[in-house]
Amino acid sequence: MTDPTPIYRSDLLASGITPDELRQALRSGALTPVAPGAYLRRAEADALDDDARHRVRGRCVQHTLGWDAVLSHVTAALFHGADLWNPDLSRIHITRDRRSGGRRTDNLHVHPAPIAREEIFVVGAAAVTSPARTIVDLARSLPVDEAVIAGDSLLRRYPSALVGIPAALDGAALRAGVASARRVVDFLDGRSESAGESLGRLRLRSAGIPEPSLQRELFTPDGTFVARVDFFWEELGIVGEFDGMGKYGAGDPESTAESVHREKLREDAIRGLGFEVVRWTWAELFRFDVVADRFARAAERARHSLPPTAKTPARCMPRATVYPARG
């Protein structure tokens, strides 16, 4: 993480800059305000995307309030590099280890709650809640789609966070949203590699489709690698693929055409093993009935075909990463 370091008014004045000189720097655009009493050089500020701007604002808030104001919730998730879907970045979220004193303004949300020392990480020169604590806080406070996307991505980055989740849930036992959080964290899986794959798992469950294996490697009967697939139903003889735009590139038509061609050859090879392939796009995640129908037709076709030798477990290998079973 290489966010720029804010320049604080107090430090500028202490260095000998006069208030008039500071006002002139702001008028000329040499400095740009990013938070009360905090600035960036214009080029640095212009280069920030929304996520980076939020992180810089978070550091400014913590600088003002002190390190006992631990950055949390969505703010902590951004420091940890989580994938967030449609996040509300208007407020900086902090948690303070106290029983009361919560407040919410247009720019700040203070959460009063116990926080253990082991639940505090230092990331990018800021004190933030640990990945496990962040996962639970988001699972308590966000809609399910958003909580699963963020939680999956945090587990992907920090697989060991799974060990800390039970304690974080126990610590939140009396706080709002913990029942929902327990359901969310039981569903999380760090093997989902994108927001689209996380949403896909949710939509599959809602459609009553059996739970798939994730990121399975397929081989020919002689052991030649064919593909690693997003979703796999070995018993049904079906492969599921989420068509994110990252698979095809963007901007360069020749590159995109080549990517599409390679993807077609890959799918042909998967079908050559005897598997049905069901694909869906981002837009279809929001009208998933068409995918469920597609899946049902594929399952019917698979039932009427002879089982290929490539469907044996020896030819369908999981990725090396192993996630502990949930109780």
Rank of each mutant, 00 (worst) to 15 (best):
A147F: 05
P143S: 11
R140S: 07
D88S: 05
P308N: 08
A25G: 14
E258G: 09
A38S: 13
V136Y: 03
V110F: 03
A310I: 14
D3N: 15
L84F: 10
P221L: 09
V277R: 10
S192K: 04
R315A: 13
A207D: 00
L142E: 07
R294V: 07
A179V: 14
L218T: 03
E276G: 09
A113I: 06
L65P: 05
E211S: 09
R201V: 00
G327H: 14
S255T: 06
A269Q: 15
I94Y: 03
A35M: 07
A113R: 09
R203A: 01
V239H: 01
V277Y: 11
L174S: 12
S206R: 15
D293H: 14
P253M: 12
L236C: 09
A43W: 04
A126P: 08
S90W: 09
G37E: 10
G251Y: 07
D170F: 07
L78R: 13
R27E: 11
E276P: 02
D11N: 00
Y323P: 06
R133I: 12
T64E: 04
A116I: 10
R57M: 15
D137H: 06
E234M: 09
F219G: 03
F121A: 11
C316L: 11
K311L: 15
I94A: 08
A207L: 02
R99W: 13
F79Q: 05
S72W: 07
P114I: 08
T220F: 00
A250M: 14
R319S: 11
W85F: 13
I270G: 11
D46P: 01
P307Y: 14
E263H: 13
T95D: 05
A181T: 01
S180H: 06
D97S: 15
L188G: 00
E217Q: 14
A38N: 09
L174T: 09
A168E: 08
D88V: 08
R326C: 00
R287H: 11
A325P: 05
G251E: 14
W233M: 05
E235V: 08
R271W: 05
L31C: 04
P112W: 08
V144A: 15
L71H: 06
P131C: 04
V291D: 00
S192L: 05
E21C: 06
A173Q: 13
R140C: 12
